[in-house]
Amino acid sequence: MMIRNLTLLLALCCASVQAQEVPSIELKDLGDLTVDTRALVEAAEGPVLFCFWATWCSPCKRELNNYADLYPDWQDETGVEIVAVSIDDPRSMMRVKPYVNSVGWDYKVLLDPNKAFARAMQVNNVPHTFLVNAEGQVVWQHNNYADGDEEELYEELLKLAEE
């Protein structure tokens, strides 16, 4: 046990601490297509905003509904693509598509029912939002949502667009 723990500690100490990068995890989208999260970021023309949410999470839905009104302007000004990652488990996974269509979100929606991507992104609880640059690095994140948080996010998006 001791050897194992020390080895792991050594490995971690030797690794460089740098900006968190989006890992490669395969998820299904609402059309049953397989999407690789890393490939999605690499194919995007601008920054990507990953929003972890669930149908049972009220602040998550408030966040994504508020972004929906602003999204067309954000896309024009910064080229951002919003990807809503649902962590709904088998109990509520099938509610995701009807809900998303009913509220008319124009986001790409991915299903992460056993939290593989959420774990890899170090998500403790939802909502958790990550802004990812064209290199796939996380440049801003926020764990919570209150009305008005989109203003700070918008400033971050503008900064990224200027770079």
Binding site: M94, R95, K97, P98, Y99, V100, N101, S102, G104
Partner: peptide
């Protein structure tokens, strides 16, 4: 078993 149908503005499950 689960079935759903949805279009913009309406979802049924």
């Amino acid at each position: 078993l689960n079935a759903g149908w949805s279009t913009k503005g309406l979802g049924i499950n």
